Computed example of a mutant assay.
Amino acid sequence: MAGMPEAIIISIVLPFVLFGISIGRRRAPAFLLGVLTYVLGLLVIRLHLPDHLLGRSRMLEIWQMRHPAVFSVLIGSAGAAAGELLRLLVMFILLKRKTWQSAVFFGAGQGSAEVLVLVGVPAVGALVSPSIPQHPDVYAAVSIEQLCIMMMQIGLSVLMLQCIRRRDWRYLAAAVVSHTAIVTTVGFLPFIMHPAHQLAAILTVFIAGGLLLAGYAVVSKKKIDTSNRDWF
């Protein structure tokens, strides 16, 4: 079935391959911390933050009804900023080996957990249950989107590593701005584009963001202090 094999490879095979590599590189704790960070972000930020804010503010409810595009952008921005602060706290407090590889596997863990939950589990359900509609092209597109998000998570984690090691808050600002720019652009596109072109536009944004942040992660390897023996 066209589309499904690619979705299965990206959303199920790749996460377990990356976890296996992290074990071989002795970076499994960093990978699992990334998974934990995704779970915390999902439970606290994505699921409860919007409902909590709406429940506390009548003004936000009015904004949501009257200005859905602006509301979507604001919620996306708040979620991106909260996500980067959560990443900073977890990496600063719990990540013992603050090296380039640890940051890469930390981001890979976040991305792997996300693609497994959002794409892998539903794809398997669609394959094994005849009652669940199968949309292989959609699964393939979303898996590519999640692969780009994994690349973004790796780049953002390396930015946060720089913030921690250099004690330079500009790296935190760069992570927040980058994450927010991508999320708000994707959140705003459905309100200004024809539905037939939305998927292609959203994928373009994620691909560009993923390549830029992953490229930064690769380039920054030479710039990060390599004097620590725990580098490799």
Score class of each variant (00 low, 15 high):
Leu32Ile: 11
Leu85Pro: 04
Val158Ala: 00
Tyr38Lys: 01
Pro122Gly: 07
Asp168Phe: 09
Pro195His: 11
Lys223Met: 13
Arg167Thr: 11
Val119Ser: 11
Ala141Tyr: 00
Leu94Tyr: 12
Ala108Glu: 02
Ile132Phe: 08
Gln153Cys: 04
Ser129Asp: 14
Leu32Ser: 10
Gly120Ser: 08
Pro29His: 12
Tyr139His: 05
Ala196Arg: 12
Ala200Tyr: 11
Lys222Val: 10
Arg25Ile: 02
Ala80His: 01
Ala108Tyr: 07
Ser77Met: 13
Val124Trp: 14
Leu161Arg: 04
Ser227Tyr: 10
Ile149Met: 02
Leu212Tyr: 11
Val218Glu: 14
Glu145Phe: 13
Ala181Tyr: 12
Met150Pro: 00
Leu14Gln: 00
Met4Ser: 05
Ser143Pro: 08
Leu74Tyr: 09
Gln153His: 10
Pro122Ile: 05
Val121Cys: 09
Leu118Val: 15
Ala123Trp: 00
Tyr216Ala: 03
Asp225Ser: 08
Val218Lys: 13
Val128His: 11
Ile10Glu: 00
Ala123Ile: 03
Gly120Ile: 04
His197Phe: 15
Val13Gln: 08
Gln110Arg: 11
Val183Asp: 09
Leu89Thr: 08
Ala80Leu: 06
Val115Phe: 06
Ile192Tyr: 05
Thr226Leu: 13
Ala201His: 08
Leu14Thr: 00
Arg166Gln: 14
Gly187Tyr: 12
Gln162His: 14
Phe92Asn: 14
Ala196Gln: 15
Leu88Arg: 10
Ile182His: 02
Pro50Thr: 10
Gly3Thr: 01
Ala214Val: 01
Val90Arg: 06
Pro130Lys: 09
Ile224Glu: 02
Gln134Lys: 15
Val128Thr: 10
Ala141Ile: 07
Arg165Ser: 04
Lys223Val: 06
Thr204Ala: 11
Ala174Glu: 08
Tyr216Ile: 02
Gly41Leu: 03
Gln101Gly: 15
Pro136Met: 02
Leu54His: 08
Pro50Gln: 04
Met59Thr: 14
Lys222Ile: 06
Leu36Val: 11
Phe71Asn: 05
Met193Trp: 14
Phe71Asp: 00
Leu60His: 08
Ile45Trp: 01
Ala174Arg: 06
Leu172Ala: 03
Arg166Tyr: 12
Ser227Ile: 09
Val35Ser: 04
Leu161Asp: 04
Thr204Ser: 12
